[in-house]
Design a binder for these strands. Structure first.
Lengths: 123, 123
DNA sequence: CAGCATCCCGGGGGATACTG
DNA sequence: CAGTATCCCCCGGGATGCTG
């Protein structure tokens, strides 16, 4: 179950992969080998700072491999490791759920606040 | 696929359910109806502030229902809605992955830094 | 018991500028 | 091109205290 041994273990991993960008990067790398700039372009809102940091973490955790080619115009390619690729299916599961339910979630959020009696407790 | 329509839609939902506490709370509520204090105790690290806020968001998004009993010792019960319950399976998928791979992730993290040639680029 | 208000700090993370 | 370093602001989120 999700909470595992008191939630500790799972929390650790969840904290790691559930940040703002990790899943997006992993998902993007599902396409295959990509260079830094490619990733940067394919992931709209990300800053190169966060891209770098997140990639470093992913590399450190063994989910992504980094290959630098010592060429004059530097080229660095990022690719999912087998472990990283194994994250794709469950990530797809979550993404699937997200896509299936986003509309009712947003509808519910709209409705909220119109509540009879709900004091609309500030932001 | 994960990135959906350019990543926008999915990002929205992911940002919502991937925060530090949401999945833990949903997981805990999988047990059934729980009162505020019960939740507070079952989720070790959480502050009542974050518990309240996260519950409010979950309620707002229609994943959790809140029932307040107008009794003298106030009693409020939280329960997963059908939508909320539908999140359990994919969440379990992710949790399963986390449990299966946490060891190699932590091992990989240990190994990192010992890299031959890796300039140990500061923090 | 449930939970809102307030204070306050750390750090997540964007923008910008510089380097190999 | 692929980063790194710096500045700096914002807000996540813990601690505490008060109310119904």
């Amino acid at each position: 179950m999700i909470r595992g041994d008191g939630g500790r273990t799972i929390r650790a991993v969840l904290d790691r992969i559930c940040d703002k960008w990790t899943l997006l990067i992993v998902a993007t790398l599902d396409e295959g080998c990509l260079r830094f700039t490619d990733l940067h372009r394919q992931i709209p809102g990300i800053s190169q700072r966060m891209l770098t940091l997140t990639l470093r973490n992913l590399e450190r955790d063994g989910l992504v491999s980094r290959t630098a080619y010592a060429e004059v115009p530097p080229r660095v390619e990022y690719e999912l490791t087998p472990t990283g690729r194994s994250l794709i299916p469950p990530a797809l599961g979550l993404a699937g759920w997200a896509m299936e339910h986003i509309e009712e979630i947003e509808a519910s959020r709209e409705a909220y606040g119109e509540r009879p009696g709900a004091g609309a407790a500030g932001a």
